[in-house]
Amino acid sequence: MKKEIIYLLALILCVSCEDVIDVELPETEPKLIVEGLLRVDKSEEFINVEIKMKETSSYFDENQPVQVESAVITYGRPLNDGLFETLAFSSLAEKEPGTGIYIPDPDYSSDQRIRTSAAQPGIVFILEITYQGKYYYAQTEYAPTVPLDNLEQGDGTLFEDDDTEMIVTFTDDPEEDNFYVFDFDFGEFLTVEDQFFQGQQFSFSYFYNDNLNPGQEVTVSILGATEEFYNYMDLVLEQTTDTGGIFQTPIATVRGNVFDVTGLDNINIYDNVERPNDYALGYFAVVQEYSQTITIQ
C-alpha cells in the first residue's frame, strides 16, 4: 500500500511539473507570393500560362491562395529609353474561384493566350499585378535553351546503395554564355552554367536519394535561364532541403524579381533601390523547356 501511495504521489508530482510554454513569434506583415515560372514548349501553339498567387501566413499555417484585383502580362521587343518596338498583352483571370491560379482570361473580348511564336530571344515579358491597393511589377527576358541529347539510367551510387543514378547529356550553345535549370521531377532541381564546357557536349550524373521503383516513370527537363533567374534558383536551392519542392515554400531571405512599385514616378526604376522592404516573394520567368521521360529499370 505504501508503494502504491508513493507511485501515486510521484505521478502527481510529474504531472504538476508540466508547464505550457507559449512561443511568441515576431509578427510580420503578410507578403504576396508570385509563382510565375512559364515553360515554353515550342512544339505547342500556345504557352501554358498559369501564375499562382498566394500570401504568406503565420509560421505554423500554410500560405493561402489570394485573389488579386488585376493581373496582366505585357510583352515585346525593347528599344532605348524603356520604349518597345511593339507591345502585346494578355489579361489574366482566376482559373476557378478560390484557387489563386491565373490564366489568360477566357471571357475577354479577344483571345488572350500567348503564342509560343512570340517567345523569341530578346523579347521581354512584364507582369503587372494590383493587389490590395498595391502595384507589383516584374520584368524578365525570354530564355531559350538547348535540347537534351540523351537521358539514361546508370548503375552508380553516391551515398546509399539504393541511390538511383540519372545520366544527362546535352550540347551547349557556343554563341552565348548560357545558364540552365534542370528539373528532375519530384520537386528536385539543379542549376548549371557553361563556364567550363562552353560549346561542348557535356554529361553529368544526378542521384535520387529516395527509392524509385522499377516501372516508375521519371521526367527530366532542361530549362533556359537568364543569369538573374539562375542566381535566384541557386540561392533558393542552397536554402531548401526536404520542403516538398522549391516553389512550395518561397524562402523569405531570397528576393525574386517581383517588386512593389506603388507610387514610383519612374517605372524604369523597378528594382527598389531605395525601398528594400517593398517586394513580393517568388519569381516571374519565361523559359524554353525540353523534356525526356525514362522508365526506371
Rank of each mutant, 00 (worst) to 15 (best):
M1V: 12
I5H: 07
Y7E: 10
L9M: 15
L11Y: 11
C14N: 15
E18D: 13
D19N: 13
E29L: 09
G36E: 04
L37C: 08
L37F: 15
R39Y: 15
R39C: 11
S43A: 15
E44C: 15
E45Y: 13
F46L: 08
I47S: 09
S57M: 12
F60A: 12
P65Q: 00
Q67M: 09
E69A: 13
E69L: 06
D81V: 09
L83Q: 09
F84G: 07
T86H: 14
L87G: 04
A88I: 05
E96K: 04
E96I: 03
P97W: 02
G100C: 06
P104Q: 03
P106L: 07
P106A: 04
P106V: 11
D107N: 13
D107K: 15
S110I: 13
S117W: 08
Q120F: 10
V124H: 07
F125T: 01
I129V: 09
Q132D: 08
K134C: 01
K134M: 05
K134H: 03
Q139G: 00
T140W: 01
Y142G: 00
A143Y: 09
P144L: 01
V146E: 06
D149S: 14
Q153L: 06
T169G: 07
F170A: 01
F170I: 03
P174A: 08
E176F: 12
N178F: 02
Y180K: 10
V181I: 13
D183W: 03
F184N: 03
D185A: 06
G187K: 11
E188Y: 11
E193V: 04
E193S: 04
F196C: 00
Q200R: 13
Q200G: 11
S205W: 05
Y206Q: 07
F207A: 08
F207R: 08
N211T: 03
L212P: 04
P214I: 10
T219V: 10
S221A: 10
L223C: 04
G224L: 01
F229L: 02
D234K: 14
L235T: 01
T240Q: 02
T240R: 09
D242Q: 07
Q248R: 14
A252S: 15
V254Y: 05
N257A: 00
V261F: 06
G263Q: 09
G263M: 09
D265F: 11
N266E: 14
Y270P: 02
D271Q: 03
V273C: 00
V273Y: 02
R275L: 12
Y279S: 05
A280G: 06
A285E: 05
Y290F: 15
S291W: 11
S291I: 08
I294P: 07
I294D: 09
I296W: 13
